[in-house]
Every structure is written in C-alpha cells, then in structure tokens.
Simulated assay, not measured.
Amino acid sequence: MPPYRLAHLSDPHLPPPAGALGWRDLGSKRLLSAIAWRRKGSEHQPSVLQALADDVARHAPDHIAVTGDLTNFSSSAEYAAARTWLQTLGAAADVTLSPGNHDALVRAGAPSTFEPWREWLGDTPQVAFPALRERGPLALINLCSATPTAPWLASGRLGEAQLERLTQILTSLAGRDLYRVLTIHHPPAAGVVSGRKALEDAGALRALLAVHEVDLVLHGHAHEAAVSAIPGPQGPIPVLGVPSASAVGGRRHPPARWHSIEFSSDRRIRVVARGLSADTGRFEALGDYVLQAPQRR
C-alpha cells in the first residue's frame, strides 16, 4: 500500500484586499499591524505563494494542513479573500486550517469563531476546537491557539476547554491504529519563538502530551524551518514547523518552504522538504529524513 501523503504549509500572509481597513481601525491593534505590513509586506509575495501552491498540486498530496496566518488584520474583507484562496487549494474536506494569531488580531470587526472558514476547520456543522478529522491512516486533531492579545504581543492560548476536549479525543483514540497528528499555529516546544510570541499554556499542553500518545505536531508562526521535540509517553514527539509559504527570503527569514510528509503502514514517517531555490526561482527538494513512530500499545 502506498504511503499516505500530507502536505504542510503555513503563514501565507495573503496581501490585504482593497478596503481591508477602515477609519475605525485607526484606534485598534490593526493600525500597528498595518504599519508592520508596510515595513515587511514586501517579504511576502503572491507569486511565491502561487509557485508553492502549484508545487504542492503537482505532488498531489492526499491532504493539506495549513497552520495559520492567512490574514494580516483579521478583517472581514481579508476573511473573504482567504476563503477564495482556500478554495484554490482543493476541496474543504481535503484541507485542514488551524487559525493563527493574525487571524484573530482583534475581536471588533472580525467574523465570529472563524465562521467563513468553517468547512476547512473540521467536519461538524459548528466550529469547535479541537476538531478531529479522520483521513486514511491519520487522526488529524486541529487545535486553535489564535486569540486576540494586547498590542505588541503575538502570543497564543488554547484554554482549559480545548485541553479538556483534547484529552477526551486522545482517550477515544486509544487502541486504534491511527497516526495521531496535531496541527496548531503556535509551537508547543520551548524556545522556538520569543516569549511575546509564545503559546501561553504550552506547559499544560506538554504535560497532557506526556501522558497521551501523539505521533507528530505541526505548527507555523516562527517563519522558520523548526525541528524540535516534546516528551511523550513512549519517547520524544517530533514537532515540525515551516517558513512562511509566501516568503521571498532574505536577512530576516528563509524563503518559502513546504513539507511533504509520508505516513507508511510500518509506522515510518518520511519528511521531504521542498523550498524556493534562490538559484532557479523554482521549488526544489532540499532534503528528507525519516521518523520512526512508536508502535501502538
């Protein structure tokens, strides 16, 4: 049986459409984000994102995971534009989105509970996190760390309700021969991002995962190719992050990259990194490695 293939990309930071901000936003955190976008927006190019999406499509993965930050200001106009972009990736049943901090920048003027993206968040009629999506040999568990924060902060939080439901989901999967993959925007491993960008209750999440089996955690937010690990009941749990899917690359951050992750029936996980080449301007294989997932008890 061929391996099941999951594509992971993150932080596309789609360009804000006309009318994304109004005069009421001048007194909110959106103004700070708009200033930052004027300074850093050139680092994110739609042509790079399109080239990455085309490369993903050529490899025809079975499923795609997008770990957040589709928008910059979390405005209604951006949500609508992001929905259109999500539709270009594939059917909603074949794409899972975990919202990022920019997708929940402020409460005012933002769609409630990410409703415009509901079909990409989970399989239930109502938006609820964590969302369990069973696809082939995978149990995809979609968490949401996106929450409005004070100015100058880009931190995230899951909250007690999500952590309790995550415990229930993982308990329900006990004894089933499925790869358990968590998707989340903020990295749960310590030291991947600075304190002002960190997951506030990462310690509680790590304590939970030290008891309940998970095979892989995928995140964004760092705009880096991050490889780390957190303790699990049968050994370290791999935690993987990717750079921004629209990044040109330069002094601040590396160019765009995505991961093709292959899950085999022998509990082997092969990760193939594909990134934007500065020499050719095309996406090329940068390398690959294999992770051995623990055998199910």
Rank of each mutant, 00 (worst) to 15 (best):
T149C: 11
A150V: 11
A150T: 13
P151S: 03
W152D: 13
W152L: 15
L153K: 09
L153F: 10
A154Y: 12
S155Y: 01
S155C: 11
S155Q: 14
R157I: 08
L158A: 03
G159H: 05
A161S: 15
R165Y: 06
T167P: 02
I169C: 09
L173T: 04
G175E: 05
G175F: 08
D177H: 13
L178N: 06
L182N: 05
H186I: 00
A190D: 15
G191Q: 11
G195C: 02
G195D: 12
R196N: 10
K197A: 14
K197Q: 12
E200Y: 04
D201R: 13
A204I: 04
A207D: 14
L208R: 14
L209F: 04
V217P: 07
H221Y: 03
A222Y: 04
H223M: 03
S228K: 13
S228M: 01
A229I: 03
I230T: 07
G232M: 03
G235D: 03
G235Y: 04
I237M: 02
G241H: 06
V242F: 08
V242Q: 14
P243D: 01
S246I: 10
A247H: 12
V248H: 06
V248S: 11
R251A: 14
R251T: 11
R251E: 13
R251F: 12
H253I: 13
H253T: 13
A256T: 11
W258L: 12
S260V: 01
